[in-house]
Amino acid sequence: MKNLVFIFLLGLLSLQAFSQQTSQEKINNIIDTWHKAAAEANFEDYFNLMTSDAVFIGTDATENWQNEEFKEFAKPYFDRGKAWSFTSLERNIYFNEDKNIAWFDELLDTQMGICRGSGVLQKTETGWKIEHYVLSLAIPNENVEEVTHLKNSFDKKLISEIRDN
Score class of each variant (00 low, 15 high):
10 L>I: 14
141 N>H: 07
54 A>Y: 08
152 N>D: 04
154 F>P: 02
36 K>Q: 10
128 W>V: 07
108 L>F: 01
138 A>N: 13
72 E>Q: 11
81 G>F: 01
30 I>N: 09
17 A>G: 02
40 E>I: 03
161 E>T: 09
38 A>M: 07
90 E>T: 10
7 I>C: 04
40 E>M: 03
70 F>T: 02
77 Y>D: 06
46 Y>R: 01
87 T>L: 05
89 L>V: 05
128 W>P: 12
105 D>H: 08
28 N>K: 13
34 W>L: 11
162 I>N: 08
52 S>W: 03
38 A>E: 08
22 T>P: 06
114 I>D: 01
93 I>Q: 06
159 I>V: 08
122 Q>N: 14
125 E>F: 12
125 E>K: 13
110 T>W: 00
73 F>P: 08
44 E>D: 15
46 Y>C: 04
66 Q>C: 02
30 I>M: 11
161 E>C: 05
122 Q>I: 15
13 L>Q: 11
45 D>I: 05
162 I>W: 13
58 G>E: 06
116 R>T: 02
55 V>T: 10
156 K>E: 05
52 S>A: 08
40 E>P: 06
143 N>C: 01
44 E>L: 11
26 K>R: 14
81 G>L: 00
60 D>Y: 12
108 L>D: 00
39 A>L: 08
53 D>I: 04
138 A>I: 05
124 T>K: 09
2 K>R: 15
141 N>E: 11
93 I>E: 06
153 S>P: 02
112 M>A: 03
90 E>H: 05
135 L>W: 14
15 L>V: 09
138 A>T: 07
160 S>N: 09
40 E>T: 10
73 F>M: 12
97 E>T: 02
124 T>N: 05
129 K>P: 03
32 D>S: 13
104 F>W: 14
17 A>D: 06
147 V>L: 03
129 K>Y: 04
100 N>S: 14
75 K>W: 01
33 T>E: 14
128 W>S: 09
109 D>G: 01
122 Q>V: 15
87 T>P: 03
14 S>I: 09
48 N>L: 02
96 N>E: 01
43 F>L: 09
54 A>Q: 05
24 Q>R: 13
70 F>C: 07
67 N>D: 10
127 G>Y: 09
42 N>W: 12
64 N>L: 05
79 D>L: 00
45 D>R: 10
38 A>R: 06
56 F>D: 02
140 P>R: 01
104 F>C: 08
19 S>N: 10
